[in-house]
Amino acid sequence: MRENEELRAASRPVTSAASAMTGARQDELDAIDPGWCPVWDTGWQRCYWLVHNHVQAGGTLPEAAGDVVVQGKDLGRWVTAQRFGWEQRLPVQQWILENTLKITPAGEDERPVKQTQDTKWAPNLAAARQFHAREGHPRVPRKHLEHPEGLGGRQGGADGGVVVKLGIWLDNVRKRAAKLPEQRRTDLDQLGMPW
Rank of each mutant, 00 (worst) to 15 (best):
R2N: 10
E3H: 06
E6R: 15
E6W: 10
E6V: 13
S11R: 15
V14C: 13
G23M: 10
R25L: 07
Q26L: 14
D27E: 15
A31H: 14
D33V: 14
P34T: 13
G35S: 07
C37Y: 13
P38A: 09
P38Q: 09
V39D: 10
R46A: 09
R46S: 12
Y48I: 07
W49F: 05
N53W: 08
A57L: 07
E63G: 13
V70F: 04
A81R: 14
Q82A: 14
F84T: 12
G85W: 03
G85Y: 06
Q93A: 03
W95T: 07
L97H: 01
E98H: 02
P105Y: 06
K114I: 07
K114A: 06
Q115I: 05
D118E: 15
T119S: 15
K120R: 15
K120C: 08
K120Q: 15
A122F: 08
L125F: 11
A127T: 00
A128C: 07
F131R: 00
E135Y: 04
P138F: 01
P138H: 01
R139K: 11
V140P: 00
P141L: 04
P141R: 08
L145T: 06
H147P: 01
R154K: 13
G160Q: 08
G160E: 09
G161I: 01
G167M: 01
G167Q: 01
L170H: 01
N172I: 02
V173Q: 09
V173T: 11
R174C: 06
R174T: 09
K179N: 13
E182M: 11
E182H: 11
R184M: 03
R185M: 04
D187Q: 13
M193T: 05
